[in-house]
Simulated scan of single mutants.
Amino acid sequence: MVAEIPLNSSENSGPLLGRHQFLAPGVETEIPTGIIHDECEFLFHEAGGKKSASYENVNCVLRMKANRLQEGWIRIDFQPEIHHGENQLRRTAAGEAWSLKMSQKIDVRVAQRFSMTLNVGELALITAIPHEEGTLGDRFFCRDDQGTKKQRVLCIRVVEAGSPAAALAR
């Protein structure tokens, strides 16, 4: 489930918005965070220090894959991706061949990938530190809405993991 919460809540704050998606183990999916930027600069914290990069027409995406470890346990891998630029036909791998697909350029942020292990019924929340302006988390999960900074929260809950047909609720 994805929810959006105003950082400075008041009586005039809107309700939480959300949607659900189920993912079977071994299946990879893209989860757009819903934050789209016409133009922005990202600040990356990496082993060598801080680096920055600018992009246009940005769509922030978390690539997610769930793997069943044993009965009741799932490892979830997250790969942040910055989809940017214009949509155009691009060559993509399709099995043992190549195909053409309409897509943007993709900057895969390998240094920022992460994983977590959850048991049935456990819940994980993924979001940003709201005052870390320009970071990957800020760009993926925070946006300005008419002068009010709003923050999104990605909720992951394992609802079943005992069989190969196990699913995750998002």
Rank of each mutant, 00 (worst) to 15 (best):
L69I: 15
R109N: 05
F42Y: 13
H83E: 14
K50W: 04
S9T: 11
G18P: 01
L168Q: 10
N119K: 11
H84I: 09
L125G: 11
Q146M: 10
E71H: 13
M102F: 07
G121P: 03
H84F: 15
H20M: 11
V158K: 01
S9Q: 09
T127G: 09
I5G: 00
L125F: 12
M102S: 05
H20F: 13
A53W: 02
P6Y: 01
C142R: 05
E160F: 05
P32R: 03
D77W: 02
V120L: 05
Q88G: 13
A97G: 02
L154P: 02
S99F: 00
P32F: 05
C142E: 11
E133A: 13
R90Q: 12
M64Q: 12
A166H: 06
S163Q: 12
A165G: 15
V120M: 08
S99P: 00
T135G: 13
E81K: 14
N59Q: 14
H45E: 10
L7W: 00
A169Y: 05
N119M: 09
S103L: 04
G14K: 04
A97N: 03
G147A: 08
G147H: 05
F44E: 00
T92K: 03
E28T: 15
E81C: 15
V58H: 06
S115A: 09
W98H: 04
P6F: 01
S163E: 14
A93T: 03
R75F: 05
L43G: 01
K51G: 04
G95T: 02
I156Y: 01
R157W: 06
T127R: 02
E132C: 13
N87E: 10
H37S: 11
R157V: 14
G147M: 05
N119Q: 14
H37L: 08
W98I: 09
F141P: 07
G48T: 13
E122S: 12
L123N: 14
V110A: 12
C155V: 15
I74N: 03
E56T: 15
M1D: 13
Q88K: 10
A47V: 07
R139V: 08
L17N: 13
L100D: 06
V120Q: 12
L123E: 14
A97S: 03
C142M: 06
A3R: 04
I129F: 09
N119V: 07
P164K: 10
I106D: 00
E39C: 02
V58G: 13
K101L: 07
V2P: 01
F22G: 12
L136Y: 04
N12A: 12
K101V: 11
Y55P: 14
L123K: 13
S54E: 13
P15Q: 04
I5T: 10
H37K: 09
